[in-house]
Simulated assay, not measured.
Amino acid sequence: MTTPSDPSLDVLLSERRHLLNLAYRLLGSLTEAEDAVQETYARWYALSRSQQDAIRSPGAWLTTVAGRICLNLLGSARARRETYVGEWIPEPLPGHSELIGGPTGGAAVDPADRVTLEESVSLAFLVVLEAMTPAERVEFILHDVFCHSFAEVAEIVGRTPAACRQLASSARRRVRDARPGATDHSIRRGQQAGLVGEFKQAWEAKDIDALLGLLDPAATAVADGGGLAVTFPDPIEGGEQIARTWMELARRRPESMTFSERTVNGRPGLVAEQDGAVVTVFAFEVAGDRITHIWVVRNPEKLRHWAES
């Protein structure tokens, strides 16, 4: 005899992907996002059955709780990152990732303010989010990305809807100031694939002139080793300095290290492998026909999902 499935349980489980999507964009770490989602479900199951039955929308309840958990974690994360060794870069994910899903919020968002789920998971975008206050980040992701109303967001961040509108305005200014050329994402992605491939070829050929032609003169490169892997400690400013640094890296490259073009958070990037293990992930941002930013992640704790891909 089979036991009929519990419809409420099916609803709860169907929300997990949405919660993971939300938490990763809020925290910049899939590991922390998984912990936040687990804590969200633990709080649901800590309720009595009568308390659960009294909740009209379990999905909305889970989103509210997850948002509050992430808001608290963002506050403590800032303190932890002050003691982090070197630069902190969000955790990169392989491929387009299952963390690109449809929005589940009910509010309509002005297309001018809309940020697509695909763009919001790119490493370049996650880096911009790091400059926001915890409240700005939560408001921006919930409203502009996941289409929740200001009233819904206000309940999560503990502010009025009017205050949430101000947070949204401030967050959008940060995005515009940090990424003034980010407009046509499909074209930029196609250009990026070509530029990343040319960058790999020039690097492997130790062709510094070719590298200089691919890098914006004002380009920057940032590396994250977390004190667990050797890398350059400070951001590198300027295309010429980056090209020279990459030439030095090419000369020091172990024979067993190989490079491959891979998709990083839905965008073309590079991955270095040594003895079959991923040791470095390179993410890029492109403006026009030049590379403007390179992020290098070598912290092995942020590469565990690459071993599983």
Rank of each mutant, 00 (worst) to 15 (best):
4 P>A: 13
6 D>Q: 04
7 P>D: 15
9 L>A: 08
11 V>C: 07
13 L>H: 02
14 S>I: 08
15 E>C: 12
18 H>Q: 14
20 L>I: 13
20 L>D: 12
23 A>S: 15
23 A>K: 04
27 L>F: 05
31 T>S: 12
33 A>V: 03
33 A>M: 02
35 D>A: 14
38 Q>T: 15
40 T>I: 07
42 A>Y: 01
46 A>P: 01
50 S>N: 14
50 S>I: 15
52 Q>V: 14
53 D>Q: 13
54 A>S: 15
54 A>D: 15
55 I>S: 08
62 L>K: 05
65 V>W: 05
74 L>F: 08
79 A>D: 13
82 E>W: 05
83 T>I: 03
85 V>I: 11
85 V>G: 00
86 G>M: 03
90 P>Q: 08
90 P>N: 09
92 P>T: 03
95 G>H: 10
97 S>M: 13
98 E>D: 13
98 E>W: 06
100 I>H: 11
102 G>M: 14
103 P>L: 11
109 V>C: 06
110 D>P: 05
111 P>G: 11
114 R>H: 09
117 L>M: 11
125 F>C: 06
127 V>E: 07
128 V>G: 03
128 V>P: 01
130 E>T: 10
132 M>V: 07
135 A>S: 09
135 A>H: 10
136 E>F: 02
139 E>P: 00
140 F>A: 10
147 C>G: 13
148 H>L: 00
149 S>A: 07
150 F>V: 11
154 A>F: 08
156 I>G: 02
162 A>N: 05
162 A>L: 05
163 A>R: 10
164 C>E: 12
168 A>Y: 00
173 R>F: 02
174 R>M: 09
177 D>Q: 04
181 G>Y: 07
184 D>K: 06
185 H>F: 02
186 S>P: 04
188 R>V: 07
190 G>H: 05
190 G>M: 08
192 Q>P: 00
194 G>P: 01
196 V>L: 02
201 Q>P: 02
202 A>I: 11
206 K>P: 00
206 K>C: 03
207 D>E: 06
211 L>C: 06
212 L>H: 01
215 L>D: 08
216 D>V: 01
216 D>W: 03
218 A>G: 04
222 V>A: 07
226 G>K: 02
227 G>S: 06
228 L>P: 04
235 P>Q: 06
236 I>E: 03
239 G>Q: 06
239 G>H: 07
246 W>L: 12
249 L>I: 13
256 S>D: 14
260 S>E: 15
269 G>Y: 10
271 V>F: 09
277 A>M: 00
278 V>P: 10
281 V>R: 03
286 V>F: 03
286 V>H: 01
286 V>G: 02
288 G>S: 02
298 R>W: 07
299 N>S: 01
301 E>R: 15
309 S>Y: 12
